[in-house]
Design a protein around this nucleic acid. Sequence first.
DNA 1: GTCTATAGGAGGATAGAC
DNA 2: GTCTATCCTCCTATAGAC
Lengths: 224, 224
Amino acid sequence: MPLSSPAPASSSNSRAHRRSPKGDRRRQQILDAAMQVFARDGYSNASIGEVAAQVGLTLPGLLHYFPSKTEMLLAVLDMRDQRSPRLQDYPQTLTLEQAVAGTPLHWSKLFEQLLLVNRSNVDIPGVIKAFSLLNAESLSQDHPAQSWFHHRSELMLELITCSIRQGQQAGEILASVDPAQIAVELVSMMDGLQLLWLRHPDRVDLDGHFQRYLERVQRTIAAC
Amino acid sequence: MPLSSPAPASSSNSRAHRRSPKGDRRRQQILDAAMQVFARDGYSNASIGEVAAQVGLTLPGLLHYFPSKTEMLLAVLDMRDQRSPRLQDYPQTLTLEQAVAGTPLHWSKLFEQLLLVNRSNVDIPGVIKAFSLLNAESLSQDHPAQSWFHHRSELMLELITCSIRQGQQAGEILASVDPAQIAVELVSMMDGLQLLWLRHPDRVDLDGHFQRYLERVQRTIAAC
DNA sequence: GTCTATAGGAGGATAGAC
DNA sequence: GTCTATCCTCCTATAGAC
């Protein structure tokens, strides 16, 4: 249920694909390999030649599908946008502005969704590793993934802030709570926990720790 | 007061320096420049040629002080070990084993120290950026900083866990609290918060958010 | 669509003069 | 201690044949 919502007809912002069924399979294959390589080496240290070899292509062969390394990265980010589990009732086309403008999710529903998303991440450590690396790397100057991560984190912050604020207006959350504080906390905890989990997979239980944290947050901010 | 404790005579694990006063100043100058470059580009994407230029040297000139890029990185990490504010009563020579074996800090004292360390980080965004980038980057395979970050996070986890456990034995912390949970949370929050702060310096208040988080943790785990 | 061949550059590191 | 000159490896990207 949390992974629902239909895929959009086509990503609006991406360059038009020539829709050949065989070519699409290749593209997909390449992007999967790319993510594996990014998970191991990050972006700037990764070699797209190795991605090519991994799918049985030469470098120029691969560049036929993605004309540059940067284009390949952006395609990987696009893929994440479309494949990642979505918050219920929030289709993939959601923009930051729509999230702020629209009716926010009920906060307890949002928390539940965050928990489920986090839980599903346990099964895809490679993906999480790639995006944790990219998340930090994108802080460096003129990184091609900078705006993607910037926008994404902004979206998350707004989403949570709005839900909390609405919970306050409904009298379900203490008025003394700062919505922005909770939003920043949740995003920080998710990202930081992922890093620590990747470094100490045996010692850190991604799902368990986040669950217990979230429960404490809930108990602390709930009215009465 | 939190920044106390004397610098050790010389870092035990590092290659012996030829102690020339002028050379030491140069070394220092290079390491400062290196950290700036690492803060902007990360490690693997950084060019030590640029570090050289920044201190008015050519590449071979710089390699006279640090024979390889890796050695330079390790020297930067060493510097962090020696310069960073230390937990009161815990001199720099503390090893993981000693921390576990010795008498742990009182938990409220530890929390206070964490708060102060975090607060002092606000003034050195460049250093924090370099180390946040390196922290993630070091997850990649065979990264020269891998063991440094691994050991460091392990140390932090043990330090916190022991303090919490001792608080429980003293009856000051609820027995129902899992010490490892709190340790993982604190480390994750600090690292995650730094990342989000670096991305949204205007929106995220590093000191304020951590302070409010820590206060809530304290209220939640305190007995009675 | 996929290849061979090649251009073009950047970065790390060494040799050896001063 | 610092330089010039050089080497070598690796990488992205293009040209053009099949």
